[in-house]
Nucleic acid binder design. Sequence first.
DNA 1: AATTGACATGTCAAAACTGGAAGGTCTAGA
DNA 2: TCTAGACCTTCCAGTTTTGACATGTCAATT
Lengths: 183, 183
Amino acid sequence: MSLRHAVLGLIVELDGASGYDLMKLFEISLANVWTATQSQVYGELAKLTADGLIEVAAEGPRGRKEYRATDAGREELRRWLVEEQPRPARRDGVLLKVFFLGQLEPGRARAYLRDSAALMGERRDGLAALQEEVTWGDDNLSLYGRLTLEYGRRFFEMRKEWAEWAEAELARHAAPPEDADHA
Amino acid sequence: MSLRHAVLGLIVELDGASGYDLMKLFEISLANVWTATQSQVYGELAKLTADGLIEVAAEGPRGRKEYRATDAGREELRRWLVEEQPRPARRDGVLLKVFFLGQLEPGRARAYLRDSAALMGERRDGLAALQEEVTWGDDNLSLYGRLTLEYGRRFFEMRKEWAEWAEAELARHAAPPEDADHA
DNA sequence: AATTGACATGTCAAAACTGGAAGGTCTAGA
DNA sequence: TCTAGACCTTCCAGTTTTGACATGTCAATT
């Protein structure tokens, strides 16, 4: 149940936020960390309220509801942070395709990896640009947000290099093998 | 719907497999690529059969059912491989915690990153050992499986280095800042 | 005055996933 | 002979996620 803590965590750190605020944060700040749809965010907000971990602190102009964490909520966040974590389930659609790339013609398989490398490069550049652009504050959200952004950059960089390596590996297999003492 | 194609893909590549066979492959071969529980595997097998993408080719000794892909199944796998892929949803429980690590005392936050780095190192070593141990055949499953295994190794390596970097970054913030022209 | 677009929430059905429980078969070794 | 362990399948209840649809407010532009 991590969505719960993602929502709770944001409310604690921001010291008050609306569902709409959270949605935007999920789209931007948490994009590479945890995704959530709008219906999930509002649903979780309702559940957290029912469980007494957050409460509506104020109601704004357009039906806006400003949520704030209760003491129980802050406690629950800490509990979760310290808690042992089960092995995360890794699921990766791109990797899954690579696993079955043998069903495609060698040329197509290599093209897939080339495209993938290019895409990863773009994403890496996007995050790198973000890192340069954004002026960071001094608060915790900034500090730890910076760490996760750097993670994203490294992640895409790694993926790009791996895809390039894999493509070369495929090329090596497609080409007639040459002896080491050749050339 | 990637589980569907993971199951279908394995059946195509193995040219026949039982639910039990697939489960083991999900535990070992696909562990870093796509996870599935036993109930998911058997459920998907039933659905794929109903949709005519696979069929029971033979029944073995212990109630074992050997599934094989139909032509429609092989076609569907190819279609999926070539198809455009939507942006994958990235979800990472460890990263999520890092994002909110500001709620913990600095010492605990750093300890979390240190532990994380150590764990990632272990996993990397585990995969590296696997790479050495396993004798690979010449079939497609081996070739592409090798690529994904190497991915896993690089992934954990990257994470380890990142966690170490992040820990150092936190240390830098905790310590009184010194001038560049000091020392 | 009308329109566009950002702001803002609520609800729902369907699909996917989790974490079991339950039951049966065959093989090798004590 | 017994029994532990690998083999093998089926079913299910509960939770999470997806991908909409529906509704309305307010501010600025045309």
